[in-house]
């Protein structure tokens, strides 16, 4: 290798580009990603593309109660592709709006939990000592209880509401991020570039967030994709159990719960279709997460 590199062509293959390249090598993951993008688009665009606003009682017709998929309103001729529930709500619209609530709750709680977990985890790894011991014991304590149990207790105390579900999910999930970030930060912390940054008299905050944190991100991204699927499932479970979102803003879990009573009387569609939507969403996210884990794993890199 020559000392002066002016004559060698500069090949900039940024880490981001390599990850994209490796990610699309796996068709299953691409399908997962496409499905997830589709689901997310439907959720975001629900108010504009749904045939009906399921929250607007004026649009509901009690005569349409529990229509099977494919039947239509005899006045307007509007076809209910996925049937209606016992109040005459179009299931397709309800699922679109339900996805919206489910994804909103999951992504807001994900964002908050990542922020809190990351700050706590990086600080624990960077400062070490008592702060580290204290934070990690709290994390251990929290992770030793099943997430659903903690969430149930919290919601039993707080009551129903979208904001309360988000709060419960953040409290349940921050510990995963804190532990993940801490474990990779503690490895990075011992590397010379952190000492070099300290030698250059950079502030602790700058070292933590500009030097330490960016090098701890790959495992965090993997945990985040797994956890967002968990958050959606957990929210659905809580709503299904009747402690989650209020009945006026049905998420997927609440829709499934609503149809549960009618399941054995042959009115299967009220529970089945929201259930399929939930499964597709979670599977899609997990497929993406699995592939990301492979791509971001430094040990599998060539």
């Amino acid at each position: 290798m020559t000392l002066s590199t002016s004559n060698t062509p500069v090949r900039i293959d940024s880490p981001g580009r390599r990850i994209v390249k490796q990610f699309i090598e796996d068709p299953v993951a691409v399908v997962g990603l496409v499905l997830f993008v589709l689901v997310a688009l439907i959720a975001v665009a629900a108010p504009w593309i749904a045939p009906q606003n399921p929250y607007d009682l004026a649009q509901l017709d009690i005569m349409d109660s529990s229509l099977a998929p494919g039947e239509s309103n005899f006045m307007t001729g509007q076809i209910y592709w996925l049937g209606t529930d016992q109040q005459g709500r179009d299931m397709l619209s309800a699922i679109m709006y339900g996805l919206r609530i489910s994804l909103l709750v999951a992504s807001i709680s994900l964002g908050l939990a990542i922020t809190i977990g990351t700050i706590v985890g990086v600080a624990a790894a960077y400062f070490g000592g008592r702060l580290d011991s204290f934070v990690m014991r709290v994390v251990d304590l929290q992770l030793s209880f099943p997430a659903i149990l903690i969430a149930l207790i919290l919601l039993a105390l707080l009551g129903r509401g979208v904001d309360k579900v988000i709060l419960a999910l953040v409290i349940v999930q921050w510990a995963y991020y804190a532990r993940t970030v801490r474990s990779s930060a503690i490895v990075e912390r011992r590397k010379d570039y952190i000492d070099a940054a300290r030698c250059l008299a950079l502030s602790d905050r700058r070292i933590m967030f500009r030097h330490l944190l960016p090098n701890c991100l790959p495992p965090l991204i993997v945990v985040a994709t797994v956890q967002i699927a968990q958050a959606i499932a957990l929210e659905a479970t809580l709503s299904f159990l009747g402690v989650g979102v209020p009945i006026t803003e049905p998420s997927l879990g609440l829709l499934i719960a609503n149809g549960y009573d009618y399941l054995l009387s042959g009115v299967y569609w009220i529970s089945l279709f929201p259930g399929i939507a939930l499964v597709v969403t979670i599977v899609a996210i997990n497929l993406v997460g699995d592939r990301l884990r492979d791509v971001l794993n430094p040990r599998l890199q060539k």
Partner: peptide, 23 residues
Amino acid sequence: ARDAALRIQMIFQDPMSSLNPRL
């Protein structure tokens, strides 16, 4: 303290791990 710290710098052993790979 900062000025004195900057006057004394260190050159590390491992050229790879002493550079932040993300910068």
